[in-house]
């Protein structure tokens, strides 16, 4: 998809606004149209990605160890962790539902951590990466917020199932840890600057033809 005729704003001595797309001379601090901070494409921005990434990972551990739900019925009280709830459903024979929950609450968060780490590692390697990395980034950005669904399910269950001694459900500490983990992972993904994917190594190739600005309608 990328040809030699496409140049980055950074290489042309300009800074593009990541919010509204307007172009300013390099060194401009704020976009004059939308007011967002203009930041040059800089590998050091990865520090923020890693900081949020670790915060998310740390909170992901208690999110899995502590109970998410506390169910009291006539037969006693039961505490369920994320994986425990899925296992129990599977034992009842609800394989499909168990699999979906396991996918959404265990597999996708782990895949997200791996994907962000992969993106952050590979942008350090020089060379063209292109569209597939951006697609991965888009998927991570899109999926990230959907993990919050577990927290909402806990909220709905524990506010709705208040049936005296028949059954009551209360949230467990893992709900808080999980919500924080998801929020930190979202911040980690948002801190990743996708422009890094196309970052050209600082030394320009003299053999390259003069860059032409392209347009597409």
């Amino acid at each position: 998809m990328s040809g030699p005729e496409i140049i980055s704003a950074t290489d042309a001595g300009l800074t593009g606004c990541t919010q509204c797309g307007k172009v300013w001379p390099a060194g401009t601090a704020r976009c004059g149209r939308c007011g967002s901070h203009l930041h040059p494409v800089d590998i050091r921005s990865l520090q923020r990605v890693w900081a949020w990434w670790w915060a998310g990972l740390i909170f992901y551990i208690p999110a899995n160890l502590f109970p998410m739900l506390r169910t009291s019925t006539m037969f006693g009280t039961q505490e369920n962790t994320i994986a425990g709830g899925a296992v129990e459903l599977a034992q009842h024979g609800d394989w499909a539902v168990a699999l979906i929950i396991l996918m959404a609450s265990v597999l996708i968060p782990i895949a997200k951590f791996i994907a962000i780490a992969y993106l952050a590692f590979t942008v350090r390697v020089p060379g063209q990466r292109g569209g597939r990395h951006l697609m991965l980034y888009d998927v991570v950005e899109f999926i990230g917020r959907w993990s919050m669904i577990d927290v909402f399910v806990v909220a709905i269950l524990s506010s709705l199932v208040q049936l005296g001694f028949v059954a009551t459900i209360h949230p467990g500490p893992a709900a808080v840890a999980f919500a924080l983990s998801v929020a930190f992972t979202m911040l980690s993904a948002q801190s990743f600057d996708p422009r890094l994917i196309w970052r050209v190594p600082p030394t320009p190739d003299p053999e390259q033809p003069a860059p032409q600005v392209t347009r597409e309608t």
Partner: peptide, 28 residues
């Protein structure tokens, strides 16, 4: 000039017609 907010590719955007869309030439 417009820089793609996603990949920083620089574009010269002509004024578009009523039903035209413009996609980034690099990241789409």
């Amino acid at each position: 000039l417009v820089a793609c907010p996603h990949c920083d590719a620089l574009h010269h955007l002509p004024s578009l017609g009523e039903n035209e869309r413009a996609f980034c030439a690099r990241c789409g």
